[in-house]
Design a protein around this nucleic acid. Structure first.
Lengths: 184, 184
DNA sequence: ACCTGAACACCGTTCAAGT
DNA sequence: ACCTGAACACCGTTCAAGT
């Protein structure tokens, strides 16, 4: 039985979660699949593309049903889902953010955020700026949070400065600004 | 005449700006200084530390005199200065953000931001959350902006979606939320 | 103290050759 | 079509030896 692209991505996520991003090399992944490094290039054009696929899959696996009925409740839900998705795998935030930086993968969350803000009655311009702002917030916070979490679990620092509500508080700051504009 | 640490950092910024982050290798930098790669390790313990020093220097070179008299004007000034500092060198945003992610370098801007928000009368808690939120915003926006700018100058895309006021608009969103809290 | 030269243990990627 | 085996052109870092 031969491998498919999804097998490579699945195994890549396994290596990522178990050994971290710095250990996720093409050679290491190939060894894990009992295959020559060159064999991977029949399923994926290069490492960057593989990492983008990994990022997409991490985000996809974190999807949850929508519950909130207000637009701002939905924003909190969306951002929380994205954060949890990234935190679910070691170095997940790093991978997703890097992929997004290069314009690859993980485009679905920002699209959904934008739709949500448009439905709230914001202009296309304000909605787009707000969607990007919120995404930057979620990305920045989560990378920092995950770095701190992984540092503490490695025994480097004793306690992290992250309360469970720290994320929501940053979010609320932006939402306050948005709620003003919605009412206009 | 022997090299000093600052010579290595200066030259590293030169290589970064001219050839980009992917070309800034220890071996390339050594060649540029007409020295063996191993010689660099007498001035810097490893590449990560060197990049943190590069990040600090990029931020330091961007410093400008303070003019604003209101606290929110000062926040805009501070964030604008940091953005301009990172945009001044090729891949500058990437380098500064990465260093910050690993808890190295570029700690001064966030400290100044925090002082500014405390002086505005915010509680220590809200001020800290806000300072991090603003930093994430500046970092996220600027990395994206620089990637777009460098892509267009490489001829990949024709026009960028970044108006000159796009940055300030995202900032204003957060500032609106903060201004509400200051008045309480 | 600062640098050289050589080595160690890796990378991502390509490509002819096999099945 | 999918994989092997070998190679190419690199990395960061270490360390004995020189001056």
């Amino acid at each position: 039985m031969r491998y498919h692209r999804s097998d490579i991505v699945d195994r890549a996520i396994g290596v990522l979660d178990e050994y971290g991003l710095e250990s996720l090399t093409m050679r290491r992944l190939a060894a894990e699949l009992d295959v020559q490094p060159s064999a991977l290039y029949h399923h994926v054009p290069n490492k960057q593309t593989l990492l983008a696929a990994v990022a997409d899959e991490i985000v996809r696996r974190g999807r949850r049903p929508r519950r909130a009925e207000t637009w701002d409740g939905r924003v909190v839900e969306l951002c929380g889902e994205l954060r949890d998705a990234m935190l679910a795998y070691r170095d997940g935030a790093e991978v997703v953010v890097t992929a997004h930086t290069f314009g690859l993968g993980a485009r679905e969350p920002v699209a959904e955020l934008r739709r949500c803000l448009r439905d709230a009655g914001l202009t296309e311009e304000v909605g787009d700026v707000a969607a990007r702002t919120l995404l930057h917030l979620v990305f920045g916070h989560t990378v920092e949070e995950q770095t701190a979490l992984q540092a503490t679990s490695a025994g480097a620092i004793d306690r992290s400065p992250w309360g469970p509500t720290d994320f929501e508080r940053g979010l609320d700051l932006v939402l306050d600004g948005l709620r003003c504009r919605v009412r206009d």
